[in-house]
């Protein structure tokens, strides 16, 4: 009897596991999408917004995922409804490519500027020591000797 009950419990567990996995997967995908989409009225990530349209978009995403649509399909539908600005990350093509290139170019320009300034300083350093007059060098020498005494 006990063996039979244990076998039934094991069978139930095996059967329930894929269903539990699918439910958890839907929630994870929903959460991922909410972090990739913006609320059009409050300009916050959907995951952080509680505006009426954000709640509606959340319900839309949930319903679309339940019908088996992919994240990319849902994102395309949201873009068709609210424009490309609904995506938290601009697309890496067309005008959206600028949003990726400009910060990278800015970083490269800043790194280049730091390099050029550092090189200029390094070149100027020996020239500075040449500017010290023999008289000043002799005085420093005298004062160091005086300090030792």
């Amino acid at each position: 009897m006990i063996t039979r009950l244990l076998a039934l419990a094991a069978l139930a567990l095996v059967l329930a596991t894929p269903a539990l996995g699918a439910g958890g997967g839907l929630e994870r995908r929903e959460s991922q999408l909410e972090n990739r989409v913006m609320c059009p009225t409050c300009h916050q990530l959907l995951a952080l917004s509680h505006s009426p349209i954000a709640e509606r978009m959340r319900a839309f995403i949930r319903a679309q995922l339940a019908t088996g649509k992919s994240e990319a399909q849902i994102e395309r539908e949201l873009v068709a409804q609210f424009g490309p600005g609904v995506l938290a990350e601009p697309p890496a093509h067309g005008f959206g490519l600028l949003a990726w290139l400009v910060p990278a170019a800015g970083l490269a320009a800043a790194a280049g500027a730091v390099f050029m300034v550092a090189r200029a300083w390094r070149r100027r350093a020996p020239a500075d020591t040449d500017d010290v007059s023999p008289e000043l060098l002799r005085r420093i020498e005298r004062e160091l000797v005086a300090l030792d005494d």
């Binding site: 059009p40 409804q81 609210f82």
Partner: peptide, 9 residues
């Protein structure tokens, strides 16, 4: 009639 301004532009 109504028109759709989804992006709000």
């Amino acid at each position: 009639e109504s028109v759709h301004d989804g992006s709000g532009s």
